Amino acid sequence: MQTISINCFLYILVILSLGSYAAAFTVRWPIKNIYSWEKEAHDLLQLPFNKRLPNYITSTRSYCLHCLHQLSWKELIPLFSYIKLNGKCHYCQVRIPYRYPAIELLHLICCLPLFWFFDNTYNLVLHTLLISALITAAAIDLEHQLIPDECSIIALACALLINLPTSMLENSVLGMITGYGIIAVLRWFYLTFRGQEGIGLGDAKMIAGLGAWLGLSGLVPLLLCASLSGILYTVLINRNGTKYMAFGPFLISSAMLVFFLNL
């Protein structure tokens, strides 16, 4: 019992650390990539490009986004530092964005049950990384309507490795191919008949990973749940259709719901 308690405590520390890194990634990834795309566009058009990335983005250390003061380790303890600092920067007293404690807490809520669901380290580690990648992708897609390839690749790799030593590998591969194919075909039809992009390839790549995770049999409840939640969001919140709706968070939250209900 004592060993289990210690292992659980250590796992909680790992989850929160992973959540802290994921929260920082949701800030740095968009800035870095938008910078790269702007630079590439200027180079393509042979235009001068004098913009530079901020030091707090290129540095391996963490900074306050407002006053740019380098943070000490005491100010970077997941959840606890946020509570101790009352949600404000110690130096400039500007409120710390809610994304940090929210993403750390989401990691704790979504990953902690895995400790009791899996009794081997192999499955526990892979599922933890997979769910962390999904939470990170959902957070970025919700804010920027972009799904990082890094998150999709991690999710896909973890899903295939999870099913590799089992009899579910074939079902996993079929789920990956079918999931990607469904979204790619829908995207092609929308482009052909509407002349505009209705769903991005980022969603297709993500659902390939989700299909590999849940298998072919899990695609139907996944797509049904994601579609219904998307419709419900449109009816209740986005009635006028004035706000672009990122589909990634609906896919990811539905996939995790299907996964936990089937455990």
Rank of each mutant, 00 (worst) to 15 (best):
D43A: 13
P221I: 08
Y244C: 06
L210K: 02
L105Y: 04
R187I: 03
N171G: 15
C67D: 14
A255W: 05
R194P: 00
D149S: 06
A137W: 07
N55Y: 14
L106V: 04
V220T: 13
V220Y: 10
I231N: 03
N163S: 13
V27P: 00
L219R: 06
L130F: 08
Q2P: 01
I207C: 10
S20G: 13
G200R: 04
R61Y: 15
I83R: 00
L45Y: 11
N7W: 09
L44H: 12
L228D: 08
G198I: 05
S62E: 07
Y190D: 03
S172H: 07
F247N: 00
T242C: 00
L224N: 02
L18V: 14
I199E: 01
I57E: 02
C64V: 10
I207A: 03
L76Y: 03
A255S: 12
I31T: 07
W188N: 06
F247R: 00
S132L: 09
I57Y: 04
I109D: 09
C151E: 01
R99K: 12
I57S: 03
W37K: 11
P148D: 07
E104I: 07
I207N: 08
I4P: 01
I199Q: 01
I15A: 01
I12C: 11
H127K: 13
H42Y: 15
Q196K: 15
I131M: 09
P48R: 08
P165T: 03
W213Y: 07
I109E: 08
H90A: 13
M245N: 05
Y11D: 01
Y244F: 06
P78T: 05
L263H: 11
A246T: 05
G202I: 08
K88Y: 01
I199V: 11
Q2S: 12
G241Y: 05
N33I: 10
P30L: 05
N86Q: 14
Y190C: 10
